[in-house]
Design a binder for these strands. Sequence first.
DNA 1: AATGAATGAGTCTTCATTCAT
DNA 2: CATGAATGAAGACTCATTCAT
Lengths: 216, 216, 216, 216
Amino acid sequence: MNIAKVQQAAVLLFARQGFAATGIRELGAAAGINSATLYHYAGSKEELLVQVMRTCLEAMINSGASALRISAEPTIQLAALVSSHVGFTATNPLTARVAEYEMRALSPVNTTAMQKLRDDYESLFAQVLERGMRVGDFSTEDTTMARLALMEMGTGVAHWYRPDGRLALAEVQHNFVAMAFKILSAKRSLLEGIDYIHPPPVVASEPISIPWPTLA
Amino acid sequence: MNIAKVQQAAVLLFARQGFAATGIRELGAAAGINSATLYHYAGSKEELLVQVMRTCLEAMINSGASALRISAEPTIQLAALVSSHVGFTATNPLTARVAEYEMRALSPVNTTAMQKLRDDYESLFAQVLERGMRVGDFSTEDTTMARLALMEMGTGVAHWYRPDGRLALAEVQHNFVAMAFKILSAKRSLLEGIDYIHPPPVVASEPISIPWPTLA
Amino acid sequence: MNIAKVQQAAVLLFARQGFAATGIRELGAAAGINSATLYHYAGSKEELLVQVMRTCLEAMINSGASALRISAEPTIQLAALVSSHVGFTATNPLTARVAEYEMRALSPVNTTAMQKLRDDYESLFAQVLERGMRVGDFSTEDTTMARLALMEMGTGVAHWYRPDGRLALAEVQHNFVAMAFKILSAKRSLLEGIDYIHPPPVVASEPISIPWPTLA
Amino acid sequence: MNIAKVQQAAVLLFARQGFAATGIRELGAAAGINSATLYHYAGSKEELLVQVMRTCLEAMINSGASALRISAEPTIQLAALVSSHVGFTATNPLTARVAEYEMRALSPVNTTAMQKLRDDYESLFAQVLERGMRVGDFSTEDTTMARLALMEMGTGVAHWYRPDGRLALAEVQHNFVAMAFKILSAKRSLLEGIDYIHPPPVVASEPISIPWPTLA
DNA sequence: AATGAATGAGTCTTCATTCAT
DNA sequence: CATGAATGAAGACTCATTCAT
């Protein structure tokens, strides 16, 4: 029995039903253990959620931060960051969704800590956009709104992408990069010859082979 | 005492904490009535949620459908639909959020009914995009993905827009229309002289004067 | 259904098994109600105990304080106080025992409050002894030790006295007064013609007709 | 690691919080071992208590019985027995308290065995008093009540005595003997030249150097 | 229309205990 | 001798819901 299995069961149920609607007996059953045994892996139901969220957010930050390091050009950074975001979200859709939706389930002290990580992640986007705007690579009427739209768009991938679906991950990533470039009126030509797509990490808490409603 | 007050209390708490994490005693307290009295307004906690969701989704459909009626031109329809979507979401952020997030809290029979309404609403976007693509007004590599991105973007407005914030609603609407046009490579010139923005309805369940974290 | 019945059931079980060893389902069953209904009468199991203890200690203080008021003579006050103490303990043996034994079951904040009441009660004895020693009515090698022995002795009555036993309450009271006078070398002659025995109060939490092991 | 340490930890916690309120993980932690290891020293939590109680009660009986052997005179026996009781209680206050309070925590079969020991111990007092009354050395209105008062008084020492306090143990013993003599109208002159105080045994389960609230 | 009292089933968590290592 | 992992039962408490008033 290992902790990843417990976390995967948790993420699966939290994503489907929500944290509050998931009982720990249910969690135990899904992980194949007695509910009391859960308390060997996490001190409480909330701590189980925190573990999952922290791991997820830290992986997103790492992935995003390393995307920014592939170039000093905001345009290339944008492409890398968006494809990192979309790639991560599509690869770990359930974990990503839990990390986003269930912030509200946390007690105040954990909210603070997790919100900090979320803010750190969002600031990656803010930095790139701000620099791109400053140097004239991007153009938009409102940088903040563009950033929010961009992120929301990408996050939405978790709602419908699935590995065995109509679209390959790389296609989705390219398409989202294309949309992002359009929104910001960035020049796609600058991307030519640049390999801005890196394989996204798979977090331990992401369940595999989930039954999932198909994208029409 | 009227039902709107009860629904507003419900939406406020459901939006903040989620349906499952909100107790019926808590709902009563927030509405200023005894929890038992809630059962005069709704047969069960779930029915209270269904009332709210149904009203919200029907209002969104009405609003979207009437937006499509202002013209036969896909380009103008798109602008009207996007601004309707953004306007509704910004005007009824909590109700809209509950209608989106809490679908999973419903029992199967209610899920079917509500998902039907949600699908009807989404099909408005699908129709416009499909026609616009067909007649060559829009251009995108993947219509489905564009539609999903567009909707998600607009829905995200509920997370940050607030009436007394930095931006007026009309500005937000224009900006989102602009982004949508960019994504679809639609011609903004076709909008000249067209008043595609209509005042969004306020649903009865939307609470007023919510304390809300400001958009930085 | 009234709260006294709940408190009586609680006292009966707390006295027999201790607070920690008594479950709330057990409490409910003993009171003839569902365990959840207990929470209409007390916010928690501990609060139920606090209610009982506070009422008991306040009644002891009142009883003791009014005993001191029957005379200004320390000798007479002593007789009245001892007979009050013994009378109260014998009349409310279970409640008194719970009030004494279960102090340790309280959370810190309640411990403070209850210990204050207990200290107030004990200080009644300290006052009388101190004055009696000062004016030469009493004689002992160590006033503190005498006070502790006196109180402990009287409290012990809760362990064995029962109304339908070999001894009438008044006999027990007279005998304990006699022992107290011996310990303090006080003159019993000063009591002649003085009615220092008052009927003890019955607290609401004291169960009636308890099965009880007879005094051999 | 030896069993005494385990018993001392148990006594410390049982005395502070009671048997029922003490968990075995807590016991393990206090003894510096894993909770599972406890089962090498005692077959169950209750057996651990029984060990402690039995050892304590047997030591009390031995101590009391040998006190009676120092003379055939009831008066001298009384002094020896009271000083043995007080000495034992003051020397092993926590163990003595556990042995007294936690009888109720035992299962029926153990209750019988332990109550037998307790009764044996109490009968030492009963014997001495009965003989002393018969031969006219003592005088009291009710022998049973006197015995109960005497024992309760002495047992109460566990609540307040501490080695580094205001009073030396011998002082306390002498004082309690004096009080006992007063209660029974026994002649102290008969004690002259008799060394009725023997060093009390220290039972293995008694914890050392306990933080203890001072006697005012 | 409104509510206080009541409850069975449920919540999360801890319990004492066992056992393979 | 020692322990980490495991568990069924029980812990206190809250739940949504009903109903007489």
